[in-house]
Amino acid sequence: MTDSEIIELYNQRDERAIRETQTAYGRYCQKIARNILGDEQEALECVNETLLKAWENIPPDQPQILSAYLATLTRNYALLCYRRGTAEKRGKGSVPLVLEDFAELIPSSTNVERIAEHREIIAEINRYLETLPEVNRTVFVLRFFCFESIPDIANRLGLKKKAVSATLYRTKKQIRKHLDKEGYSL
């Protein structure tokens, strides 16, 4: 079933929409959730929540790219769960490592509180992503959006771990430099 057909089911309030969504995107959403939460059961619950959110939000939402829409829902909810989680639970998943990586991307002198909108930085990052070669962008998204581990990224892309690390490093460095240049370093 195509994305537009699935969305049409949502629009018609046809519950098959959920089943079709799960069939098409359940595994992939679960992967994102698992990356963040580090727990299969919680990841499953997260996917269920994602499906519920999709059901609640479509319509009025009419996602252009359903996969991206669901990925974002899953990610957001998983991060919310992670934030709510206990200290012990927070040790699971890739979040700590990804945060470490992410920290290297942001200019060290950046003071988030002094920047009116986080979104400015994010928008700037997005703009910069446009300019990157696809492989760099893919590694970036897998790491910082999907919270995937380096070995998983390497496996997925058919690259060596070292190459992924280097690509990631290079991308972070470039973005950081770009953010510096754009005045996000105070």
Binding site: Y28, L79, I122, R137, T138, V141
Partner: peptide
């Protein structure tokens, strides 16, 4: 915490997400 906020806010363009995960499907 700030980093977490920021990465939570990270709204990667849908096109990039699709481009990245399409093979996953």
């Amino acid at each position: 915490e700030e980093l977490f906020d920021l990465i939570t806010e990270l709204k990667v363009d849908d096109r990039f997400i699709e481009e990245t995960i399409s093979d996953d499907l």
